Structure formats: structure tokens, C-alpha cells
Simulated assay, not measured.
Amino acid sequence: MSEPDQRLYFLLQRAAHQLRTAADRRCVTAAGITTVQLGALFAVEDRPGITQQQLARTLGLRESAVTGLVTRLTTAGLLAKGAHPSEHRAVVLELTDAGAVALDAARPEIDRFNTELRELLGDDGFSRTAAALHRIVHGEE
């Protein structure tokens, strides 16, 4: 039997793609939203009144990509835009009731997805992997 592939970056890319595809399928079925849309809704839920620029930083996306994302979410009635209290060109984002319903519909599926990953990696492996990925995402050493 040959050694398992040790090209970690390559494997992470492939795994991320497969996981995103599976999670998207499940979230669309459960709540009618993709994982990127779900991430945006979670970010707005966590920080009501967040600006599009702040949302772009939070999601690690270009502002132009977030503009399209926010347009799709507002058109779907999941987010509402409001005037920024001090910056006349900025808008603030709020979760609508429909956005909260979509989050509530997606949560059980995300919980199941995480449970499956925890079973695959084991409790210790899941926690260690989550901690390592958190450090990578947030630039911590």
C-alpha cells in the first residue's frame, strides 16, 4: 500500500472544495441559501449595523464581491440596508425577520455537518484542527 499524499496545502484545497460543495447543497436544501450567504447572515447577526466594508473584511472577500452578495441578500429580503449614522456614503446592514428564519433553518444542518466532521476527526482532532485553522485565519502564531 502506498503512503498517503502528504501535500497538505493541496489536500486542504481539495477538501475545502468538497466540503463547501456538500455544505452548499445542504444549506440550499434546508434554507435556500449558500454557505457564503450564510456566512454573511451570521456576520450581520453577530454585528448588527455592520457596514459592507466591515462585512468584506469579516468574510475575507473583496468589497466588489460583497456588494453583489449584499444586493442578492437584500433582493431576497434577508438583509436590510440603512443609513449609516455618521458616514453619508456608507450603509449599515441589519438582518430581517426572513434572514433570521433562514439562519434558524440552516443551523440544524450546519450542526449535523459539524457533528459528521467531529466523528471523522475525533473530538481531539476536531478541536485541534479548529484551533489551528483559527490561528491561520486570524494570523495568530
Rank of each mutant, 00 (worst) to 15 (best):
G32M: 02
L69S: 10
R7E: 03
E94P: 00
L12C: 13
D111G: 00
H88E: 15
F10Q: 10
P108T: 03
L93D: 00
G122D: 03
A83M: 12
R47W: 07
G139E: 11
V36K: 14
V91I: 14
G60R: 05
F10N: 14
G139D: 11
R107L: 05
Q13I: 04
D24R: 01
T58A: 09
A40L: 04
H134D: 04
R62M: 07
I110V: 12
D5Q: 03
L19T: 14
A40V: 15
G82T: 13
F113G: 09
I50N: 08
A130S: 02
A98P: 01
L79C: 00
R89P: 03
G122T: 14
E109D: 09
G77S: 04
V28L: 01
S127F: 08
S2W: 04
A102Q: 06
T35F: 13
R14P: 03
V44S: 00
D123S: 12
I50T: 03
K81S: 14
R72W: 06
V44Y: 01
A130D: 03
E94H: 10
E87V: 15
Y9M: 03
A100K: 07
G39P: 01
R112Q: 04
Q53D: 07
L79P: 00
G122F: 04
V28Q: 11
L69I: 04
L121M: 14
